[in-house]
Amino acid sequence: MVLIYIDQAEQQIKKSSLEAISYGAALAKQLGVTAEGILLGTVTDDLVSLGKYGLQKLHQVSDASLNHFDAKVFTQVLTEAAKATNATVLVFAHNLNGKAVAPAVAVKLHAGIVTGANSLPDTSNGFTVTKTVFSGKAFAHINIDTAIKVISINQNCFGVQMHEGAATVEALSIAIPAASIKVTATHKVEGEIPLTEANIVVSGGRGLKGPENWGIIEDLAKVLGAATACSRPVSDSDWRPHHEHVGQTGVQVAPNLYIAVGISGAIQHLAGVNRSKTIVVINKDPEAPFFKAADYGIVGDAFEVLPALTAAIQKSKA
């Protein structure tokens, strides 16, 4: 049985988990087993309708204390849940919480793990999972050699896939261990789309000349429903907050569309964005290395191109 971890924040199921369900359901079909989910805590979403993504059964440990993520507690509960349900493959989203617990759960289950998978495993001769390595510059095909297997999947690599269907929901009773952390403060950036969850990212570099010029980035992001990001020199100069820095040492993103404005495309920046499906580069320097990694490009002045592009998109959506 394939057991998919359904991650929630503030009692809402994350988009990355819907993708994990779609992936897990396809994998279960490939293996000829059932696709089941495990949800910790309580959410406001309709659980039966998770069947639309291919989930057959959902196991819920509906203890309200699990509405706050705690790596040690979640590791223990998920391990017990995997044992109680006889899961043979566990699927996680390779998101913030998935990264924190999937390897620990694998260790507890004596299972091999591949994190950051980007396609379904090849099960014709073993169980070989493909993942990106060297920060997107290569792929490795890795066989999981243990009886139980754990996979976490890269975001936006498989897509959310909808079918007809309804999931049955079953309560799972597992003793909840004592909390190992105490959350003392939560700070959410209001009104912004989280960078790692965004389908579209609009990113600005030094070519924008100063923080006062970010309005044209934000306007474009707004019409696209996109998150905003920036290059390292921009966050190092405090033009933009650190959490917007994408690149090797900042945030790694893999949206459907990445629009880079006034960013030359240093290799360290590319390492954070090269898993994006489509890359658009807008730069006045035709020699900017970023054009080599781009799908579409405009050589031109951002201060002229961006407002025109924003207007054109607005028009196309009207």
Partner: peptide, 13 residues
């Protein structure tokens, strides 16, 4: 620590 769309502060022993 980073969470989706923000950060949280936690105490750990």
């Amino acid at each position: 620590r980073e969470i989706e769309g923000g950060e949280e502060t936690c105490e750990v022993t």
